[in-house]
Design a protein around this nucleic acid. Structure first.
Length: 693
RNA sequence: GCUCACAUAGCUCAGUAGGUAGAGCGUUCCCUUGGUAAGGGAGAGGUCAUCGGUUCAAUUCCGAUUGUGAGCACCA
């Protein structure tokens, strides 16, 4: 078993971080996925996570050299400050100086907290990618208003130069000491280490009055800690050992770096990253709105946002048409019984809006006639499309595509902006095929992803092969019980990935209940990983619904089904795109592609003519019609991040030209109108990311 | 769902040691007809999230609810 983090403490914490990896496209909010760090460890290392509950607990990363290379999430060309911020996030190795400093600071924080809140008890307090945290069960609450006082106390402790002393005790003695310390959570963990993991000695670190069970390493004395390179950041709740059955502790997060400059740079970059947050830009740029009367997690797409959706849908339609998909349309609701047949209910009930019950009033009083549910996924409907007529092997592979609206009752605390919503429009398709066709179809889907991501300019993603976990004690509840099928299907996908030389990590226990999948993970501007897209192999549900085709042998066979959503949902993908482009979209995606700014109202006629001609070529153009000055209108267009501003006045009108000012460029260029039109139309048609002057 | 914090005009925010509120931007109207990041003036706009409690009096104090944020848990 690998040792990392703060000894066994950190070890455990790592483990929790680790297994918290995302799964479906619906996404996960995993902060600081230790994946990157893990990946950086020795080639071929294997991590076994012994987790708990619900099955998914264990993630075992099989890190090959290839997978390891794939892990860097942020292999980008774009070098903005925001990315500089993101890049700062790699966690140092456990023997590095920075790691020791962060780890030691955690003890200093705990000491400061205990000074003011006697009787508080400790949880875990590991270093993390940009600092550290410590979990407490506090005798009196801490809020951010207490931070200045706590920081002052921490600096005082640092100044004292407390030496860190390590002491290794045999287990009996160690457990007795922890009992003396009155630390029930440390005790629980220590017992588990001894009993379940057969550890015989436990180590302790003492600095000044503070004693903690901990494996280290630490700095020599607190004086080795830079006094001005840390900052308490936030206070939040966190379940003891990441289990919602356990007590909710108070977690204090802090930033900590080598020196003040690095800390300041990080804080600044963090603030700039906040400015790119899709929730902020989404409002500023009129992309979407959330109305309380409509409901949380139910975004309203404003005209600007809808323009972006339309472009994405157009892109998907083109790519899918070329790839041999057929479009279908299905209702938003279905009989509840459909979801019993597929096996989603009752398992999935908690994530669905409650059923709409049709009640009939008869002689015997009210009688439940039927129940309908909002669809939380499109697959059952598509399966019904498949079943609408007899299918022959000649029909396969059958690729049914739909931008389908689905509804999921996400937990209230999970709902956030466009990234985690309760109604979403999914770039869905289901491919029905024979076993022999699976690899080719999967490969074709992977190519479609790659194309779409290239066009969209998204390059900071990595792939995860999400497998089942045959060692999970709850696997029978969690996964379709067909071990041979799992082995076979996972092998097909893995071979396919290996054959095309694509890089990926593995997520053990991240599979769907009906089969393995490949997830595409993107990171948000605030540094979290989210699943964007997914390709899933389903060897179970078609059988449950009795889907079949007549094979060349004249007999009935069950098709396999590939679920895929390369462009994710509009909600999630647009959130990523907003953050990726900082709201400054390339022309083809921009809600307003061209704004014509007239020098005075005298030239509005000319300006309007330009707008009409552009709109005739399906360019989203508009006239800035107001009595504002040119400066004002240029400023306004810049604030709205409109990619192309055309300034027209007397000169332009006389010569039939336009003066183009591109977003982000101060210098401008005049050209005949026709030339501009050709350029902008081509830029849109080719979906170029940069429209060069 | 859980912990903590927050909720004042369309937006960003100030304010009230308890006596029903302000700024900037935006918006509307008027003047300005202006050549590249804010021309000038006037006006409108708020049951201070909702409900309840304390009080002579609550936007302010207390409680609940709803919503939002940071985390945690969840995420087919």
């Amino acid at each position: 078993m690998e040792r990392s983090g703060i000894g066994w403490l950190g070890d455990r914490v790592d483990r929790h971080e680790e297994r918290r990896a995302p799964c479906s496209w619906a996404g996960t909010q995993t902060h600081d996925p230790t994946q990157q760090r893990k990946g950086a460890r020795g080639a071929g290392s294997q991590l076994h996570q012994h987790g708990k509950r619900n099955g998914v607990l264990r993630e075992r990363r099989h890190t090959s050299v290839r997978a390891r290379q794939s892990i860097p999430r942020r292999c980008l060309n774009r070098r903005t400050q925001v990315e500089a911020f993101e890049h700062q996030g790699s966690e140092p190795e456990s023997d590095s100086r920075l790691y020791r400093v962060r780890h030691s600071l955690a003890h200093v924080l705990a000491q400061a907290v205990l000074e003011t809140r006697k009787g508080s008890t400790l949880g875990f307090g590991p270093p993390i990618k940009d600092g550290f945290y410590y979990d407490f069960v506090l005798s009196a609450p801490v809020t951010e208003e207490d931070f200045p006082d706590l920081e002052r106390r921490m600096r005082r402790i640092i100044k004292k130069g407390q030496r860190f002393y390590r002491e290794d005790l045999p287990r009996e003695e160690a457990l007795a000491r922890i009992d003396d310390m009155g630390e029930p959570y440390k005790r629980e963990y220590a017992s588990e280490l001894c009993e379940k993991h057969g550890i015989h000695t436990l180590s302790f670190y003492r600095n000044g009055p503070f004693l903690d069970m901990c494996e280290g390493p630490h700095v020599e004395t607190t004086r080795d800690i830079p006094r001005d390179a840390f900052k308490l950041r936030s206070v939040a709740g966190a379940y003891w050992r990441g289990d919602s059955e356990n007590v909710m502790m108070t977690r204090i997060y802090a930033w900590a770096f080598e020196d003040k400059e690095t800390l300041d740079a990080h804080v600044t970059a963090h603030a700039e990253a906040q400015a790119r947050d899709h929730k902020r830009l989404g409002r500023q740029l009129d992309i979407y709105a959330i109305d309380q009367d409509v409901g949380p997690g139910l975004p309203l797409w404003l005209p600007n946002g809808t323009a972006i959706r339309d472009e994405l849908e157009k892109l998907a339609r083109e790519l899918e048409f070329k790839a041999g998909y057929q479009r279908v349309s299905t209702p938003h609701i279905a009989r509840q019984s459909l979801y019993f047949k597929t096996g989603h209910l009752p398992y999935y009930a908690g994530d669905m809006y409650p059923a709409m019950e049709i009640v009939e009033n008869g002689d015997g009083g009210e009688k439940l006639k039927d129940s309908y549910v909002l669809k939380p996924m499109n697959c059952p409907h598509h399966h019904a499309v498949y079943a609408a007529r007899p299918r022959s092997y000649r029909d396969l592979p059958l690729r049914l595509a739909e931008y389908g609206e689905v509804y999921r009752l996400e937990a209230s605390g999970a709902v956030s902006g466009l990234l985690r919503v309760r109604s979403m429009c999914m770039n869905d398709a289901h491919i029905y095929c024979t076993e022999d066709q699976i690899a080719d179809e999967f490969r074709a889907v992977m190519e479609l992803y790659a194309d779409a991501y290239r066009i969209l300019g998204l390059d900071n993603y990595y792939l995860r092969l999400s497998r089942s976990d045959p060692e999970d004690p709850k696997r029978k509840e969690k996964y379709v019980d067909n071990p041979e099928a799992w082995v076979r299907c996972e092998a097909i996908i893995q071979d396919m990935l290996d054959s095309i030389g694509i890089e990926y990590v593995e997520g053990i226990g991240e599979a769907a209940f009906y089969g393995p999948k490949i997830d595409v993970q993107l990171n948000t501007v605030t540094g979290r990983d989210e699943s964007v897209s997914t390709v899933q192999l389903d060897f179970a549900v078609p059988g449950r619904l009795g889907l079949k085709y007549i094979g060349s042998d004249g007999l009935e066979h069950m098709p396999y089904c590939i679920h895929r959503a390369p462009l994710s949902t509009h909600e999630r993908l647009v959130a990523f795109l907003i953050e990726h482009y900082g709201g400054a979209f390339p022309t083809w995606l921009a809600p307003i592609q061209v704004r014509v700014v007239t020098v005075s109202e005298k030239f509005d006629v000319y300006g309007r003519e330009i707008v009409e001609r552009l709109r005739g070529r399906f360019v989203r153009a508009e006239l800035a019609s107001s009595t504002d000055t040119v400066s004002k209108k240029v400023r306004q267009g810049t604030v709205e991040k409109i990619p192309n501003l055309l300034v027209v006045g007397e000169r332009e009108q006389e010569q039939g030209t336009v003066t183009l000012r591109r977003y982000g460029h101060r210098q401008q260029v005049s050209m005949p109108y026709d030339e501009f039109q050709d350029r902008v139309v081509r830029s849109i048609r080719e979906r170029s990311r940069e429209f060069v002057l």
